[in-house]
Design a protein around this nucleic acid. Structure first.
Lengths: 288, 288
DNA sequence: GGCACCGATACCGTGGGGGTATGGACACCG
DNA sequence: CGGTGTCCATACCCCCACGGTATCGGTGCC
């Protein structure tokens, strides 16, 4: 049972494609190859692992339990390999005066904290250049895992922090943002139930991990600024951390939501990271 | 810069070998191949990553910054790939009535808690078979990372928990174990400084990660039982968590050490684990 | 029963990974 | 300072295995 399997990433990539498509033909197309070699590669992989990964009839392909496990773990492993390559690539560029750390944050969130962090770190002796990568919700996790980023500002409980090392930075309440002049904007507090029932002001729909949107009435949004604009236009409302409302203009007002979960901004990095620059950023963040 | 590198695990294995040996000839031997193809494979890897990983003269091979990063990250990636294979393998065996979860613990530590945990989990409906893998200190981390284990009982602050999900189980003080009848065994407390100065009773030396032992006067030990026996023989003393002393026989006695750090026993598992059996074990542990 | 779909098998060509032989740089030694 | 030993790179070759095309065989559907 202590058999070292010695899988190749190519095999894993093939398997993940088939396991996701559940169809050899489509998977082969996606991989840019013909179907027969793919079939063979999968059977070879099965021999190597010593287990059937896919139950296949000529009509339907399904995952076995072992297959489900390998899909899950294989994806993680492939991301780790990608991460290794990319981080080495970037480490080389760092010597040439290019940016050496990539920090990722949700566009529009914690912007004040981010600005202070960058200032504080830049003031340190020996500070590396920091490349800021703003992105949509949920993307940071992937960037951190596959090596395109080194540090991230995440927001619990929205973002998954499993597998990362984290330090808590600030915890804040959430508020509902309303168009200025909305009758309820004079209230001092509201509940989530009241927010959900606001006539004519649906909550916007954020994309899921895979990019698709949940069903519902609200407008589809991908970005923080889109939300603010929609609220200003009187087409939506949104529940957000206080800090997101700190800089709101004259056309928005905020009301504290009492029963919304508190949001903690955390700084996160890959658990095994030994980078001096990342450590410096974390230190700077904790001193804020 | 968004170049998908697409490394193969073979290349990574080669690179890790060379980076560890810092010598192409020895690395080739270790890999069971000739030196020239290894040289070529490394240059190809360098082209793929787009960076020099090793500075080589005919006398000395050294790692570049990019090389150091790739060594670190590559090791983690290789372990992730191994883990994927092994866990899939075991998932297949699980269907055939063999053990489906592997739990690892330090030999001799938390044995009472471990027994209670196994009992509690086994009593649950639908409990899977649990394979217990006892091992030396520091080994569990590796077992969990490379897929030979699914859950571990770890002890903070001794074991590294970075990258795992954990739940705290119990926190305890540490005691010093002395041969029964030792003059100081009547004391109610001691300090670490006093323990270090006990004449004729040196602290044992535990192996480091790489298997080597630190310099010093104490006997070399690999195991909990070895320590207990040496103490009973009057050749050593040891600072251990209270629970390790709970079952001590007539030939040992324990004295509380006031300034030793508290030890927390935690249950840990890979962050991305979705296994039902692991979740059940964690639940059972939390209910103890 | 005919047909369309889809995965497995058979067979073939080529690229690349691995082998041996050798070159060339560098340190050490007499 | 030439000789020698060490060690990585290059040259050249071979063969396996990966990928391609053609085809078979099973399965569900009209």
């Amino acid at each position: 049972m202590d058999t070292a399997t010695g899988l190749e990433t190519r095999e894993l990539r093939y398997f993940v494609a088939v396991a996701e498509e559940l169809h050899f033909g489509r998977a082969a197309e996606r991989l840019g190859m013909a179907q027969p070699p793919l079939s063979r590669a999968i059977s070879q992989l099965e021999r190597r692992v010593g287990a059937t990964l896919l139950d296949r009839t000529s009509r339907r392909v399904t995952l076995t339990e072992a297959g489900r496990v390998l899909l899950e773990e294989g994806r993680a492993a492939l991301e780790a390999v990608e991460a290794a390559g990319r981080r080495a690539q970037r480490a080389a560029l760092a010597g040439t005066g290019q940016a050496s750390v990539v920090l990722t944050a949700k566009a529009g969130a914690s912007s004040e904290l981010l600005a202070k962090l960058l200032d504080a770190y830049a003031a340190e002796p020996g500070a590396a250049a920091v490349d800021v990568h703003l992105c949509g919700p949920g993307e940071q996790e992937r960037l951190l895992r596959d090596g395109r980023a080194d540090v991230a500002l995440l927001h619990r409980p929205f973002d998954a922090t499993a597998g990362f090392d984290t330090e808590d930075l600030v915890t804040e309440h959430q508020v509902v943002l309303l168009p200025a002049g909305h009758p309820l904007s004079l209230r001092s507090e509201m509940t989530l139930a009241e927010v959900a029932d606001l006539p004519g002001l649906p909550l916007p729909r954020w994309p899921r991990r895979d990019g698709s949107f949940p069903d519902g009435a609200g407008p589809q949004v991908r970005d923080h600024t889109q939300v603010l604009q929609l609220i200003a236009l009187g087409r939506a409302c949104a529940v957000l951390p206080e800090s997101a409302a700190a800089t709101l203009g004259r056309d928005l007002s905020a009301v504290r939501v009492t029963d919304a979960p508190e949001v903690t901004t955390v700084i996160a990095w890959p658990a095994h990271s030994r980078s001096r620059a990342v450590a410096g950023l974390v230190q700077a963040a904790l001193r804020l």
